[in-house]
Simulated assay, not measured.
Amino acid sequence: MTYVVTEACIKCKYMDCVEVCPVDCFYVGENMLVIHPDECIDCGVCEPECPAEAILPDTDSRAEAWVELNREYAAKWPNITRKGTPPADADEWKGVEGKFEKFFSPEPGDGTGK
């Protein structure tokens, strides 16, 4: 089992989860994070740290579509090990549905959380 980041992270990208991960398996995109499913050790400490509730175990039916996206972009985006500054409007995007189709960016972040 692994944990995955879902579309709730898009445009929120709070990054509280990054600080608690014991194996540094988070990768940063322009407007969201992903978890490398082969590096995640299923400890679950990241899940309760996410203010957007964007992290789910892969056994959750809502996570099914996100496993491969997390795997794909973890291979393309830089690893992030420290919490960066979330977007200034992150709270405005928290809880917004349907963000993937409209706002997902395949562009990498810079590895510092920006």
Rank of each mutant, 00 (worst) to 15 (best):
C50F: 12
V45F: 15
I41N: 09
C21Y: 00
L33V: 07
I35S: 02
C21I: 01
V23Q: 04
N31T: 09
G44F: 04
M32Y: 06
Y27R: 09
V23F: 03
A52R: 00
E39V: 07
E19S: 06
D42R: 02
C43Q: 11
C25K: 06
E19L: 01
C46W: 00
G29C: 06
E39T: 11
C43T: 11
P51I: 15
C50R: 04
D24Q: 14
V28I: 11
Y27A: 05
C50M: 12
E49M: 14
P48M: 10
V28A: 11
V34L: 01
C50Q: 07
P22C: 08
E39H: 10
E30P: 03
M32R: 10
I35T: 07
Y27G: 05
V23W: 02
A52F: 08
I41D: 06
M32F: 12
E19R: 08
I41V: 15
E49R: 15
G29N: 14
V34E: 00
D24E: 14
M32T: 09
F26M: 00
D24A: 13
A52M: 05
P22D: 08
G29P: 05
E49C: 12
C21G: 05
D24Y: 13
G29I: 04
F26T: 00
V34H: 01
C46D: 04
D24H: 14
L33E: 05
P48R: 10
D38L: 14
G44A: 10
H36F: 08
M32H: 09
C46I: 05
G29A: 13
V18C: 04
P48L: 15
V45W: 10
